[in-house]
Design a protein around this nucleic acid. Sequence first.
DNA 1: GCGACAG
DNA 2: ATCTTGTCGC
Length: 231
Amino acid sequence: MPDPTPAEILADPQLWPAEPPQAMELQRRLAPQVRCEPLPARSVRLVAGLDVSYDNTRLAAAAVVMDLTTMRVVETATGAGTPRFPYVSGLFAFRELPPLLHALDGLRCRPDVLLCDGAGQAHPRRCGLACHVGVLLNRPTVGVAKSPLGTPGGVPERGRGAWASQRHGDTEVGRVLRTRSGVRPVYVSVGHRVTLEDACALTLRATPSYRLPEPIRAADQLSRRRLAEQH
DNA sequence: GCGACAG
DNA sequence: ATCTTGTCGC
């Protein structure tokens, strides 16, 4: 059957537990559904950056789609909402996903891959936000976090492109990647339907100038503006 | 029990 | 996440 739409996901009560124990249980069910597979590199052109801003009362999400070959913004969409779940480390998908799905629902184009502001498999239950949204939508996703969740990983060399592994026992759950020489690295992990290698390569391609990928920076700014103009 | 803890 | 402008340095 066809991939679920953001609206269908939002409407499914089974996917929105109210309490942390049930949320953790859902993550344990989603984690095994993550698939690591090569992202057909030449077909990757449209990359969507996702981010959420919030204050005490409201959440505002943004999706910014950019064409990687030109680095131009192709389309943007936003979504808003009221917090339905407390902030709990390791569970923030349950807080940020609803407005994010509203934003994705407003997109007319179909991005080749989604870049998420947060962890993918580098997560206590191997189901960070990037895995969560990727599995639910059955779309390729990559997690790019500004700080590590759990295992800090190694320290990469100073130059752009250098990386070190983030391991959980014998498995490499993510990479500490230097996107700018001499600048604090980012933490890249697989969300869904990408390999860790492709996730890092894509992150670098999407990050020509600053520490964070351009689509994520744009989504950060847009969601912030969206939040500001609500009040 | 204590500390750490994506955004 | 957010409170927040200019400023020091490569």
